[in-house]
Each structure stands twice: as structure tokens, then as C-alpha cells.
Nucleic acid binder design. Structure first.
Lengths: 254, 254
DNA sequence: CGCCTCTTTGATCATCGTCAACAATGGTGG
DNA sequence: CCACCATTGTTGACGATGATCAAAGAGGCG
């Protein structure tokens, strides 16, 4: 586990349940939430946070802990407050497509019918807030600004998904890896964390399943970028982007 | 152009502008809209439609007509009311990824920042409604039920995009084509049109750019499915799905 | 009827996947 | 604290899927 995860989780302090997967609706976990500005709770005023706290429960996840599975009734919506989570879909024969990596502020579980469309699993030590879908919907009705924020975030997710389709359908392995590293770096920066060197908490297999490649190809491509002095692999799963401009050119296929 | 497109457009009658790209804000185009139940206007009551009609203009598009380009200021949101439209992204060297095919009821242009994230172009003779973004946002503020509907549709789009990522990242050419035909058929049915034989109005190149394949591979795979008696190519770009169950198995990789 | 575009088919090639073995890492227990 | 072992990552050899290059056939619109 990387240090930042521990810190994040410590930050949450009393709002964090200490037992695995145990819920804890303290007096006002939301008031103490250090990543609220990143989440869909952002538009809520201080004196309205009680309404949110009342329906939320915080959950701690350890690496590999599943949160829900594709096809289950989508009874909850989740918001990540610390760590990293992967969401993925499976084909019957086991082929896997990682749909996305989630970090602080990201949400999941907004299903269009009543079932989860994907599975979710913690990558690192993480914390998520759980919102019972029905209660969240009532809250959204009462606070349209929250619904508006959610629509904005969903639109953004959509744009990200479309960018990923371009990557999956039309980019080479090298372009995919370069794009991936730049994306991680940018998102890291958006959360107020260091963009370079960038933390890469997920495994080669997860990266491959995200980019439509095999583990071996991911590894080979990392080596290739390293040999070209575009990146340098550092301890604790960090990657230094030695030449961001060159990486950007590669990512765009220039 | 397939007959259905002509019919759809005739249905719209006086609401349709006859000149290319010309706007027409008649007395109440929305009241006469035959596909309103499919669009984000669905939740609006009859006596509220005037508010929508007031800000909308209808546009007729001919095959190949561009609607907007990636990177332009996203001043409008569009809703397709007849025909078919493709939206796509380009890499600098011309590689293209079709992000989606849009039919009656689908919308586009909900950008997360102020620029369109993709280009849009008519495939067949089509009709779209144009909503100036600012005015639509005011309308959404006044009618939260419309915003809720939009959020629901965006969530659905997101699920579709995720399914497409699975296809692009992990399916074989044969699985991709089978999935594609079943998807077209299902969507056709949802619009109240015949699901089988299914209309396939887009070119082999468009299909390839949607599935991450080349024209040649698309054509070869169609031939392969035809030879296996799973589909049969009919006149006017229609495809009969001879064995839907077998196609479904192929699409799922079983 | 003829031209132009789109589609189909063929031959060859390259990228990435598969299979295999080895190296490194990190977690555990002695 | 160190050694061991399991898991993850790296590297190599080879092969297959789909891309590329090329050309012929089919359809649609003038």
C-alpha cells in the first residue's frame, strides 16, 4: 500500500469505520470529509450536510476486497473518498475489461436499470461512502443542485469513456500506455496529488485489462518507454514521466 | 436512403424545415413530435411543451451533412428525431473512432466543458432538434423532471459506452460483428421499428470505425456469418438475423 | 448506359497474443 | 532479522488474428 492511502484514510479520522466493511454513521462524517469538493456532495452547503450524513455510511476496503458484482441488485451508490478502486466487466469465458479506475471523488453504481452493470473491487486500502439508492434519489429530488452536479459528473464520465473508446479501438500498444500514464498523472493532479512521478497502484494485469492488452505486452511496452528514456520506474509503484511532451506526442499518435 | 427515414421525416410534417440546415420555430413543433416519448422531452406535460418549442429549432440533414466538429464551442445540444447520425473522434493522422450511432430519441452535445468532444455527421436523411445550451440549462432549472430524465439517459449512455469498451478491448472480430447486429436490432425494436430484418444504414467503413476493425475485416466477417447461415444480406441495407440465439452466443464469446 | 463509390475477395505482413521460463518483489514465519 | 515462498513482473520464441496492399465485382445515381 502506498503512503498516500494511509494518510488519506487517517485524514478521515473518526468517520472511518475500523472494522472491515462495517458501516458507521457518526454525527457528521461529511462535515469532516476532506475530499468533499471532489465528490457529488460538493454543492451542498455546510448546514445541509446533515441530510447527507444521515443516509451515508463509510466503508473501509482492503486490497482485493470486492464491493459489488455485475448483475447484483444496484441498491447502493458509492463515492470513493480514499484509495483506488477498479470496476470491470467479464465475459463468460473469463476475459475481463476494466472499465475504469476510481480515486477520491469518483462515484459508481449509478445503474440505468436495477442491476449493477459492472463489478467493483478495491486495488489499495481504500474508503468509500455508501448511499442507499432510494434515499439518495429522495435527496436528489430535494436538492436539485446535487442532481445537477451528478449530471455534470456523468457527462464528464461519458467524455472519458468516449476517449477510452478511441484508445481501445484505434491506438497502438505504445500509444495506449503513453495515454494511460498521462491520464493517471492528470487525474492525480486534479485530486491535488503529485502528478510526476505518478503513483501506479494497479497491477500489470489490471492495466492490460484496461487497455485491451496482455500483461506481457504492457510489461514490454513499459520497458520500451524506459529504454527510450521517456519514463523511469521508481520504487513503490511510482513512474516518473521523464519527457511529458514526447509522451503526449506518442499518446496522440503524432 | 431507406424508406423509413423518408416516412419519419414526412411524419414531422410542418415542423420540418425544407431548406438545408434552416431553422424553423413553428407554433408548436413539439406537440406534433411523434418520437417525444423517446427523447429527453418525454417528461414534459402537454401544456408545458410551449416552453420547449420556444427554444428549439428543427434541422434537416442529408447524408454526409456535418452537424458540428470536435473542438468547436458546444453552444447547442441536439436531439435526433428521425434518421441516423454518427458521432466520432479523430486522431491527428486521420484514424477515426466512431463513438456511437444515434437514432430517434438520442441526444448529443452534452459536453462537460465548453467544447464538443466529438464530431457529428448525418448518415441518412435525418431530422434533429437544436437546443441552445444556455436556454436549455434554464429550462432544466425550471423543470427538474427534465433534468432527471437527462441524468437517466446519460446513465444509460454510460452503460452502453462501458459495454462498448468490453467489445473493443476484449472481443474478436466475429464477436464484435455479432454484438453489433444484435445491438442494432434491439435498438430498432426499442424505437418501435422492426428488429428483424434490421436496417443497417451505415457503411462498412463506419462499422469498422465503430468496432475497431478495418472495412475489409468487417466485410469478411459478414461473409463468414452469411456462409454459416447466421445472417442473410437483403436489399436496401437490411440484414436478416437467421439465428438470433446463435448470434447471441457468439456475441457473448460462448 | 456508364461512371463512381462501396463492397468483396485475395495475398502477404506485422502487431500483439500465447506459451514458457526466469527474475524480482514482498509478505510471512522461523 | 533473515530466509523462504508465493505472487507479480520481465523477457524470449513463436504463432495467429486482423491490418495492409491490391484488384475485381456490385450498386446507385447521373
Amino acid at each position: 500500500m502506498s503512503p498516500f492511502d494511509v494518510n488519506r484514510i487517517r485524514e478521515l479520522g473518526p468517520a472511518m469505520a475500523s472494522e472491515q466493511g462495517e458501516a458507521d454513521s457518526g454525527p457528521s462524517p461529511c462535515g469532516a470529509c476532506s475530499v468533499r469538493h471532489l465528490t457529488f456532495c460538493a454543492p451542498m452547503a455546510e448546514d445541509e450536510l446533515g441530510h447527507v450524513s444521515k443516509i451515508v455510511s463509510t466503508i473501509e476496503l482492503h486490497p482485493g476486497d470486492p464491493l459489488f458484482d455485475e448483475g447484483e441488485p444496484a441498491d447502493n451508490v458509492y463515492s470513493v473518498t480514499a484509495g483506488s478502486v477498479k470496476v470491470y466487466k467479464l465475459l463468460p469465458d473469463g476475459r475481463r475489461q476494466v472499465i475504469g479506475f476510481l480515486f477520491s471523488g469518483d462515484f459508481m453504481g449509478l445503474a440505468h436499470n436495477d442491476l449493477y452493470a459492472y463489478s467493483a473491487e478495491a486495488i489499495t486500502h481504500s474508503a468509500v461512502c455508501r448511499f442507499p439508492r432510494k434515499k439518495l434519489e429522495q435527496l436528489l429530488e430535494r436538492f436539485p443542485k446535487m442532481e445537477r452536479r451528478l449530471l455534470g459528473m456523468a457527462s464528464h464520465e461519458l467524455a472519458v469513456a468516449q476517449e477510452q473508446m478511441l484508445l481501445l479501438g484505434r491506438k497502438t500498444a505504445k500509444e495506449k500506455i503513453a495515454s494511460f500514464l498521462l491520464m493517471l498523472s492528470k487525474r492525480s493532479e486534479q485530486r491535488g496529488q503529485t502528478p510526476n512521478p505518478v503513483a501506479v497502484p494497479m497491477s500489470r494485469t489490471d492495466i492490460g485489462d484496461y487497455l485491451g492488452l496482455t500483461t506481457e505486452t504492457v510489461s514490454r511496452t513499459f520497458t520500451q518507454l524506459k529504454t527510450s528514456n521517456l519514463i523511469s520506474l521508481q520504487p513503490a509503484n511510482k513512474v516518473e514521466l521523464t519527457s511529458i511532451d514526447a509522451l503526449r506526442d506518442i499518446a496522440e499518435g503524432i
